[in-house]
Design a protein around this nucleic acid. Structure first.
Length: 672
RNA sequence: GCGCCCGUAGCUCAGUAGGAUAGAGCAUCGGUUUCCUAAACCGAAGGUCGCAGGUUCGAGUCCUGCCGGGCGUACCA
């Protein structure tokens, strides 16, 4: 069914148009600012009065006289300087409730008028790294957006644009090679990539000792590399090739831990050796050549990107690490109850072959040119520090491509191949300028026309209690896994305290739903554009706008339904046979009027990609239900009142379950 | 320097085209349990919407200046 607010907007706008003889009037219908003004108010008459230079109250009176809302509202009232106040009729309200009751799947929320193909770009973790708190917001906000748009009937294409290509992959591959050496050649010893990492950290300020350590590492690396061969020096055929081949059979969690360590080791090593003047041999075009040690990983990156038979090992190593990373990510997605899966992954590497074409096409179009050795586009309206045009760099002076290039290639793919009507990028607000320029270039190149909507759905940072971006005590990013585990653990402690008699299985289930739900809900309930302070205590509090409060409201309703049996109340029959409602108590009316507005909340949240509009609605719903619950007994109500109250309970439960569960991916529990 | 975002109750935040007396939650104070989960409910108190101008019948919302904070700003993503 059509949203009430839209229906009112349409009818009042038409009345305004005919009374004032002005085309395209806006009634500006909003929920009433105060319940004493009714349920809705139209604010647009004052602006119209100004436009046609007439008295707003008088104009409002005329509009009301030309308006027939008798099927929905009590006679409209003109108030204040020219507001039109509207109060829904009781029988209209009742009819709506019954309509919702009859629609189990959609709660009588219509699909959007025009079905669009919408690409949503979100989550985007990096290969060979663990997901950390920085990925939380993109992942869950993006998921909520997908779920809402999908529910509204759009063709949603989630895209997980993972960081699986780029300059750091040489380090990833070298890291894996170190894992191999530690296991195969130095088996039985503590892996050197771990001990040496600690060593480098310990002497971080002692340059002399660091140099000694790095020389030793370099020397061993050269020896290992020379030995790892059968046919020609450093071909990797002796140890690395067999190591790669048996990777698929390994215990993945153990291997994953090693990869993470080795990657950290490579990062540290490369940073440390810079400027030491060390050189190391490697194969360049089939010949052994000395190159600066710190350039080794970039050399390996180049081998990977070149591909082909000679670089098969590099490609295989990359593929293994990529596969393992996605397994870890999928595990987090499962925990977070996010719908992303492997079919949505289309990472940077997928666009690798398109990048030269992107640059060539932009050059051909006269948009891109060389500047200081780099290929740049200078979109209109962007200035740098000196007031000069700001470059959007699409190819570095060394020939390498950047994320600007990849994003352009992806955008083009999404418009041309996926037929996107809209592309939504869910990333943090620091990338605002990047996306503004990206969109400007895409428009200039006509890769996105006026009818293609490009939106940067940005969000703020997650802060610690100290107001700085959330980090561990040692200054590292907080691992998402650890964060979620702690939330579940804390929720478990509360369940244990509040409801010790529950079964172990129930406790586990409730703790996960409440813990994860709390983290997600806390994020959703904040305005996404602002930073927020992460606090377990606040998000797990049972009071206030939190997941547990919502889940508790739901659990109470389910409890009523369970109790019904022992009181010989057949809920199903009573609900199915309810034809007339007896909405009398203030709490009943208040709850009923809120229930019929679910569709408005979903539409508002989806239109602006703001989940907090939905959480606000749900919180108010739970509050109104709680008031109803304390004031209006259900099972012990007199027979005339009971069906209505049961219906209100059931609709509230279904709405919470739909909003929380289906649209936000927060699990509800039957008891807690 | 320039650009963008932010500044609302003691704290954390809403405020969806410029609309009526600026709202929640937490914390504080007071009340509610023979009754469906008190993980709850009801009430009280709490504000110069950073400051100063301007536009408007009407400004937390739009414009200008200032103060304070965050982020970004040519080869990271």
């Amino acid at each position: 069914m059509k949203l009430i607010i839209d229906e009112l907007e349409e009818r009042i706008s038409k009345a305004m148009e005919s009374v004032a003889a002005v085309r395209l009037c806006a009634a500006v219908v909003r929920p009433a600012a105060d319940a004493k003004f009714g349920d809705y108010q139209a604010n647009g008459v004052m602006a119209l009065a100004k436009q046609v230079k007439t008295n707003p109250r008088k104009l409002a009176e005329e509009i009301v006289a030309n308006l027939d809302l008798s099927d929905m509202c009590e006679p409209p009232e003109v108030a204040g300087p020219g507001f039109i106040n509207l109060r829904l009729k009781a029988d209209f309200l009742a009819a709506r409730l019954l309509e919702i009751n009859g629609d189990a799947d959609r709660l009588a929320v219509d699909k959007a008028a025009g079905r669009k193909t919408i690409v949503v770009d979100f989550s985007s973790p990096n290969i060979a790294k663990q997901m950390h708190v920085g990925h939380l917001r993109s992942t869950i906000i993006g998921d909520a957006i997908c779920r809402m748009l999908e529910f509204l009937g759009h063709n949603v294409i989630p895209q997980n644009h993972i960081g699986d290509w780029g300059t750091q992959f040489g380090m990833v591959i070298l890291g894996l090679w170190h894992v191999c050496m530690a296991e195969e050649k130095y088996a039985g010893q503590e892996p050197y990539y771990r001990t040496e990492l600690e060593e480098m950290k310990a002497h971080a300020t002692d340059r002399k000792t660091l140099e000694d350590i790095c020389r030793r590492i370099r020397k061993r690396q050269e020896e290992d590399w020379r030995e790892d061969s059968y046919e020609s020096t450093g071909d990797g055929k002796k140890l690395f090739r067999p190591f790669l081949d048996k990777l698929p059979t390994r215990d993945e969690s153990v291997l994953w831990g090693k990869i993470l360590s080795a990657y950290q080791y490579m990062n540290m090593l490369e940073e440390t050796i810079a400027g030491m003047g060390l050189r190391n041999p490697t194969l360049v075009d089939g010949k052994v050549q000395d190159i600066p040690f710190e350039l080794l990983s970039r050399h390996v990156t180049a081998m990977l990107q070149k591909g082909g038979k000679q670089n098969q090992q590099e490609c295989d190593a990359w593929a293994h690490v990529r596969r393992l990373t996605m397994k870890q990510c999928n595990e987090i997605y499962r925990l977070l109850n996010v719908t992303l899966n492997d079919s949505h992954v289309r990472g940077e590497s997928a666009y690798n072959d398109d990048l030269p074409g992107v640059v060539a096409d932009l050059k051909k179009a006269g948009l891109a040119g060389e500047s200081d050795g780099a290929v740049c586009v200078f979109p209109e309206g962007f200035k740098n520090k000196e007031g000069q045009p700001l470059p959007f760099i699409i190819q570095k002076s060394d020939g390498a491509y950047l994320y600007a290039t990849t994003d352009l290639a992806a955008l083009r793919y999404r418009v041309y191949k996926l037929k996107a009507d809209a592309i939504v990028y869910v990333t943090d607000s620091r990338q605002k300028l990047h996306f503004e320029m990206l969109f400007a270039v895409a428009r200039a190149a006509c890769w996105a026309g006026e009818d293609t909507e490009l939106t940067h759905v940005m969000f703020g940072s997650v802060l610690g209690e100290d107001g700085a971006p959330l980090k561990t005590r040692s200054g590292e990013n907080v691992k998402l896994r650890e964060l979620l585990d702690e939330a579940v653990e804390r929720a478990r402690a509360v369940v244990e305290q509040k409801n010790p008699e529950l079964s172990e299985a129930d406790k586990v289930k409730i703790a996960e739903a409440v813990g994860i739900g709390a983290v997600k809900y806390a994020d959703y309930s904040n305005n996404r554009t602002s930073d927020y302070v992460f606090s377990f205590d606040k998000m797990l509090a049972m009071e206030g706008n939190t997941a547990p409060y919502m889940q508790y409201a739901y659990a109470r309703i389910k409890s009523i339904e369970r109790k019904a049996e022992s009181k010989d109340v057949d809920i199903e029959t009573e609900l199915a046979s309810v034809k007339e409602l007896t909405l009398a108590d203030a709490a009943e009316l208040d709850l009923a009027k809120h229930l019929i507005r679910y569709g408005e909340a979903v539409a508002a949240a989806a239109a602006d990609y703001r989940p907090n509009y939905l959480t606000s609605y749900l919180f108010e719903l739970a509050q109104k239900f709680s008031a109803f619950y304390t004031n209006c007994p259900v099972l012990s109500a007199e027979p005339a009142k009971r069906p209505t109250r049961l219906l209100l309970c059931d609709l509230t439960a279904r709405t919470i379950k739909h909003g929380l569960g289906e649209l936000l991916g927060i699990t509800v529990v039957e008891q807690m």
